[in-house]
Amino acid sequence: MAEIVGGFLVPHDPVMFVAPDAPPAEQAKAVWDAYETCAKRLAELDASTVIIIGNDHYMLFGTTCLPQYCIATGHTEGPLDQLPGLKKEEIPNNEALARFISNTGKASGFDWAEARSFTTDHSFSIPYQLIVKRASEIKGQTIKAIPIYIASAVDPFITKERCIELGRHLNSAITQFPDAEKVAVIGSGGISHWVGTKESGRVNEAFDRQVIEYCCSMQVDALAALTDDMVLENGGNGAMEIRNFICAMTAIDAKRGHLIEYQPVPQWVTGLGFIELSVE
């Protein structure tokens, strides 16, 4: 049977790639090093598959169809939005587990939108290339990766309560999977950032620290209780991605969180937090 071995909450900030030298060098190094720390820890967890919970940025899904939650069950490549140092490539999806999750959902009230052939965006590909692919290099063994996209950046937003339910469903489905997989889950996003609005460049460290506290102490309900109006005011439209955190924390059924790194970087328009989630 498959088991869940842990996971991470990490950012997916494209500005790091577009303007790598914008922040002070020490601060930039701390952020890049945090990804490397996550990769090393993932290799130590001996994960064979990683599920990355991210969100579209109105690139992959258009006005003709905006899924609440979508899983890639087949061929996967990405990212669509290539960046310097983040080029499009094939991604080794665990199609059997992805289909199992989708089919399990149909029997338990979760009608997944399925992407049979999928192109990711940076919300998947940044943690994939900097953590999962790097951990594969460290291990000398391919770690597969399944993209899950939830509606965290484009309305109609998935409710935070549904993110909890979806996470519980993921936990149940993964642990019912008959193959001997070791599965890690990454929640990709946050923390405070304003994307495309006049507040862009603002970082709210107080809000970020509150989110980090909730994530490290496993206060999922407190995180879910933050109203959208509060999040938009204090964390920006990008902070709606705490939904990805909520879903990942619940999917892992994490017992504790450990802050790896936090850097408020206005030059990269984001409060960048890295948390490891442990199952014991």
Binding site: M59, G201, W268, V269
Partner: peptide
């Protein structure tokens, strides 16, 4: 873009390279 929005923001998110 920021000026069009009426912002003096020094830094900007860019979701494209």
């Amino acid at each position: 873009y920021n000026k069009k929005l009426g912002s003096e923001a020094q830094y900007s998110a860019s979701i494209k390279g």
